[in-house]
């Protein structure tokens, strides 16, 4: 068994693709129309083009919005991405106008930070444990 795909619900797929590629630096993997305005839209890390895909999924179900908004209000991230250097990535993204709800914080062996993906989710950045 493998985890090949995970998802985040996004308000707007076009805006999400822009943020996840141009700002975060992921690469588009699949973009297939699936009816109406919706697309099967995935991105991958350029460091692992055959690695786990992130599905930027349209926010179809009304309960998804309630769930997501409740997490955001308490600052709870929905997904975590690994970077080599959290403070450096924080500075890079801040310069691009990204909003953080948690600045870099050392927590034992890892450093984390939490950012707003502008599509309705909070994302945690974490360093690899030293």
């Amino acid at each position: 068994m493998k985890i090949q795909l995970t998802n985040v619900f996004v308000d707007d797929q076009t805006e999400a693709l822009r943020f996840y590629t141009e700002i975060l630096g992921f690469t588009k993997k699949h973009d297939v129309p699936v009816g109406g305005q919706d697309r099967w839209l995935t991105v991958v890390s350029p460091e692992e083009p055959d690695g786990t895909e992130l599905l930027l999924e349209p926010l179809g179900h009304p309960a998804a919005r309630t769930y997501r908004d409740a997490l955001v209000a308490d600052g709870v991230p929905l997904a975590q991405f690994t970077v080599d250097d959290v403070p450096a990535e924080y500075e890079r993204l801040r310069a691009l106008g990204v909003r953080f709800t948690q600045e870099p914080l050392e927590m034992g062996p890892v450093t984390t930070a939490v950012l707003d993906d502008t599509c309705g989710n909070l994302i945690q950045l974490a360093s690899r444990p030293r």
């Binding site: 600052g75 948690q102 914080l105 927590m107 939490v114």
Partner: peptide, 24 residues
Amino acid sequence: ARSGQTLFEICSRLAMGHRLSLSR
């Protein structure tokens, strides 16, 4: 130590810095 924290950050700090694992 840092002004302006979300509930998530407070919970993380209590868990990691004080070994207090409380529910949200």
